[in-house]
Write a protein that binds this DNA or RNA. Structure first.
Lengths: 160, 160
DNA sequence: GACCAATATTTCGAAATCAGTATTATTCAT
DNA sequence: ATGAATAATACTGATTTCGAAATATTGGTC
């Protein structure tokens, strides 16, 4: 299997991939961005604005907008850090945690559905392959290109 | 490996996943949506508006906007189908084909980079696992949820 | 053929989203 | 104290998105 074949497969089946996410958003007024941000917050328990912007690779101002919306709709709360009062710490409300939990549950159903169809041997390989790929992406800093690494929390400000 | 672990892995490494796409867009004025639409058109050679909207799961009016942009920038052309003059057929220009080719080339580099790190056995398993998963997503119409399927998906439209 | 429902797409606002710049508040080093 | 650096928000104009209405075409029916 070559790369082209993979791309074609993905393109042909894109709807199947996207569907779960689509379905989840029907109930509530959450966009994909919102859901992703909530997953990120959930993953870290608490997280600061800069880190959100950094993870998702968006400007701080956009991150502010996303969190604004989530706060307005009661999905998360802002809190000033006590050690550094410039820092704003974001955390999820119970309401959001319930939704995340539901989302993960549906995702888990899909996951199980797929895993069950694989043989134990395939399951074992898949696990190790995924871990290996993650490792590659993490450690070997893609030698193909030099990514313009902007430091964590760096904000583009013209200095004259 | 359970679902939660996979989600966490993805969240922790999301930037690595997104990065290649980011890099590709630096050269030109193409958004992700644009690139995806072009890949879709490229995959089908020619494709009609409805199908684009359907694949990406966006309203037709949005699809119109995307194609407007692509046409304006010389990446694709509109053409009325002669068999059904309501239908608009989209195809790529040479300029777009060159870009798609470049994008695929970079993607292929990444792909090779990862594949090389896998053992032949792992490579073999990965291929079959991917195919199997695609098959599952395709055939077994997710029994988990009743997707509010508008219309039985495919609609036969003769093009010319 | 005339009429009408269905289909494919575009047009048209209104709302959202975004990225860049400026601003505010705070910290840190000297 | 002072100023540079940092974290976040406010503001702004430009772009994107999307639902509803409009346009054009087809196919069926009388």
């Amino acid at each position: 299997m070559n790369y082209s074949a993979v791309i074609d497969l993905v393109l042909d089946n894109i709807k199947k991939f996207v569907f779960p996410e689509e379905w989840l958003n029907l109930d509530c007024t959450l966009s994909k961005q919102d859901v992703f941000a909530m997953l990120l917050i959930n993953r870290h328990g608490e997280i600061i604005m800069s880190r959100i912007a950094d993870y998702v690779n968006i400007p701080m101002s956009t991150a502010t907008g996303i969190i604004d919306r989530l706060v307005k709709n009661g999905y998360c709360v802002r809190r000033r850090s006590e050690s550094d009062r410039r820092v704003v710490v974001i955390s999820l409300t119970e309401k959001a945690k319930k939704i995340i939990s539901a989302i993960k549950s549906v995702g888990n159903d899909y996951f199980e559905h797929i895993m069950q169809a694989l043989t134990p041997e395939e399951q074992k390989f898949l696990s190790s392959i995924i871990l290996k790929i993650m490792g590659i992406l993490n450690n070997q800093n893609i030698s193909l290109k030099n990514k313009k690494e902007k430091g964590p929390g760096m904000q583009k400000i013209k200095i004259e």
